Amino acid sequence: MTEKLEALRARLVLAQRELIKAAAEAGTVPSDNALRKIADLEVTIGAVETMIDEERTR
């Protein structure tokens, strides 16, 4: 299960980075929707990392 969680984390981080890069390239303040997606991904990444840590301590 840890491998699947790590793969999910990698996909989430990649998606978040792409949104951040797009926001930086736009040269304007990101839309509320873009900021919300970035923040939601951050929370989800944290939750997945917690699950990974829990799997490793079992």
Rank of each mutant, 00 (worst) to 15 (best):
Val48Trp: 03
Ala23Thr: 00
Asp32Val: 08
Leu14Tyr: 08
Ala47Gln: 14
Ala22Ile: 01
Ala24Phe: 06
Ile45Gln: 02
Arg58Ala: 15
Ala47Pro: 00
Glu42Pro: 00
Asp53Thr: 08
Thr57Arg: 13
Pro30Trp: 04
Ala34His: 03
Asn33Thr: 12
Glu6Pro: 02
Ala10His: 13
Arg11Asp: 15
Thr44Ile: 09
Ala7Phe: 12
Met1Thr: 11
Leu5Pro: 00
Thr57Cys: 14
Ala7Pro: 03
Leu19His: 05
Ile45Thr: 04
Thr57Gly: 06
Ala7Trp: 07
Val13Met: 09
Thr2Met: 05
Thr28Ser: 10
Ala22Ser: 07
Arg36Val: 05
Ala47Gly: 05
Pro30Glu: 03
Leu8Trp: 03
Ala26Leu: 10
Val48Met: 09
Ser31Asn: 01
Gly46Asn: 07
Ile45His: 04
Ile20Arg: 03
Leu35Asp: 08
Pro30Cys: 05
Gly27Trp: 02
Arg56Glu: 13
Lys4Ser: 13
Arg56Tyr: 13
Glu54Thr: 09
Gln16Arg: 14
Asn33Gln: 14
Lys37Ile: 05
Ile38Ala: 05
Lys37Leu: 12
Val29Glu: 14
Thr2His: 10
Met1Trp: 11
Thr28Leu: 07
Val43Leu: 11
Ile38Tyr: 04
Val43His: 06
Arg11Glu: 13
Thr44Glu: 15
Arg56His: 11
Pro30Phe: 02
Gln16Cys: 03
Leu41Cys: 01
Thr57Pro: 00
Glu25Lys: 10
Thr50Gly: 07
Lys37Met: 08
Asp53Gln: 14
Lys4Ile: 09
Glu3Asp: 13
Ala39Asn: 11
Glu18Leu: 10
Ile45Met: 10
Glu49Phe: 00
Ala34Phe: 01
Gly27Leu: 03
Leu41His: 01
Leu12Glu: 12
Val13Arg: 08
Glu3Ala: 15
Arg17Asn: 12
Glu18Gln: 14
Val29Met: 10
Pro30Ser: 05
Ala22Lys: 12
Val13Ile: 14
Ala24Met: 14
Val43Trp: 04
Arg9Ala: 10
Arg36Asn: 08
Arg56Gln: 14
Asn33Glu: 15
Leu14Trp: 06
Val48Lys: 03
Ala22Asn: 08
Asp53Met: 12
Leu14Glu: 14
Glu55Thr: 11
Ala24Ile: 06
Ile45Leu: 08
Val13Lys: 08
Thr57Asp: 12
Glu6Ser: 06
Glu6Lys: 11
Gln16Ser: 06
Glu54Phe: 06
Glu3Thr: 11
Arg36Met: 12
Leu5Glu: 03
Ala7Met: 13
Leu5Lys: 04
Leu8Thr: 02
Leu12Gln: 07
